[in-house]
């Protein structure tokens, strides 16, 4: 039985020491054969991104032609005085979108990302936009604010931006709509 024992010790030692979490030499051998699949898959994923681009552009051209297109973006400052929970957007008194934010989305907004909150169609002429912001304000209190903006839609696509900024002077968040 002693041969069994010594065999175990050496074989286990081999298993324990060579199965390193980030041992690159292992990868070299094990991935050698399926590399072609990995490469093919990589190329395919790249092609699908390009296809996705074309499909998105087609979709936008078909559903939101520039003569009627209206886009509303949302951007945020550092969020010292306001932590956003949700936004409701109305166009001409009708709710067109309601959005509830995750922590990850809020973080992306804090870090300089801008969300395309709404894309839709409107006829040419004057329109009114109402945006309602719900979240936590200074001292972690429930905070709900609204802002209204009247804009004129012409023959070209219209882009607007809802901005949430910290006003250090007022120690309050400020909500505004900017025409781009």
């Amino acid at each position: 039985m002693t041969f069994v024992r010594s065999f175990f010790i050496f074989s286990l030692l081999f298993v324990a020491t060579f199965s390193v979490a980030q041992d690159a030499s292992n990868e070299n051998n094990s991935d050698a054969k399926p590399e072609s699949i990995a490469k093919q898959l990589q190329q395919l994923r790249k092609d699908v991104v390009a296809l996705n681009r074309d499909l998105f552009v087609l979709e936008e051209d078909l559903l939101f032609p520039s003569s009627t297109q209206v886009v509303v973006y949302l951007s945020m400052d550092v969020g010292t005085y306001f932590k956003l929970d949700s936004v409701e957007l109305k166009m001409g008194g009708e709710v067109v979108t309601q959005y509830l934010y995750t922590d990850r989305q809020i973080d992306a907004l804090y870090r300089g990302g801008v969300q395309r909150l709404y894309i839709g169609n409107l006829p040419q002429g004057d329109h009114q936009l109402n945006a309602f912001f719900v979240g936590k304000g200074p001292e972690d209190r429930e905070y709900k604010r609204a802002t209204t903006f009247t804009f004129s839609k012409g023959a070209d696509a219209k882009a607007l931006e809802l901005t949430i900024n910290d006003s250090t002077a007022k120690q309050q968040p400020e909500f505004a709509v900017v025409e781009l």
Binding site: N52, A108, G112
Partner: peptide
């Protein structure tokens, strides 16, 4: 705005959308 939109997806680690 288009670039900031990319950042929005990138910061959420939605790399597919960001690349698109």
């Amino acid at each position: 705005k288009a670039y900031q939109e990319i950042l929005y997806f990138y910061f959420q680690q939605d790399f597919y959308e960001a690349l698109t």
